[in-house]
């Protein structure tokens, strides 16, 4: 699993979660929670990837809360909003929008994938790099 293709905007940033999973050839749906509509079951299937983001001030977002994010119910933010997806066995790509822009400091991305015994794993992003890149964003129209 890899985080890649970060693009910064004044209001937040996008990135792509890349997943290669060659050992589940029977998979028919991407391993991301917003593909699962089973609201009758409170249990989250073990074969979806849990993804989270932590801001330097402690605020957090998770893709398990995607419905509230998509419906705009999560007004406090940050949100982790699924954008385009692509892929088929054994490779999947999911773009996410994270906003609003994080305050200065390190930003953590966290993943966990119980079905593949991947315990909670986090990586730290250089928050300054996101801000530097966002400063280069070009406002086409205002």
């Amino acid at each position: 699993m890899a985080f890649d293709r970060f693009i910064a905007f004044p209001e937040g940033f996008e990135f792509t979660l890349l997943v290669w999973s060659p050992n589940e050839p029977g998979r028919t749906l991407p391993p991301f929670p917003h593909w699962y509509w089973d609201r009758s079951s409170p249990e989250i299937p073990p074969d979806v990837i849990r993804l989270g983001v932590t801001y330097p001030d402690g605020r957090r977002a998770t893709n398990l809360n995607w419905l509230a994010d998509v419906q705009g119910l999560n007004r406090e933010g940050p949100v982790l909003y699924p954008l385009d997806e692509a892929g088929w066995q054994p490779h999947w790509e999911q773009e996410y929008w994270v906003g609003p822009s994080p305050p200065p400091g390190p930003v953590s991305l966290v993943v966990e994938w119980p079905a593949h015994h991947i315990a909670e794993t986090s990586v730290e992003l250089d928050g300054a790099a996101i801000h530097v890149a966002a400063a280069e964003a070009d406002v086409v129209w205002s």
């Binding site: 998979r27 749906l29 391993p31 593909w35 509509w37 089973d38 609201r39 009758s40 299937p45 074969d47």
Partner: peptide
């Protein structure tokens, strides 16, 4: 309940 009981894939993606 939105998950189709006859569609296995909707319950478990793998």
């Amino acid at each position: 309940d939105l998950a189709d009981p006859l569609d296995w894939g909707q319950h478990r993606g793998n």
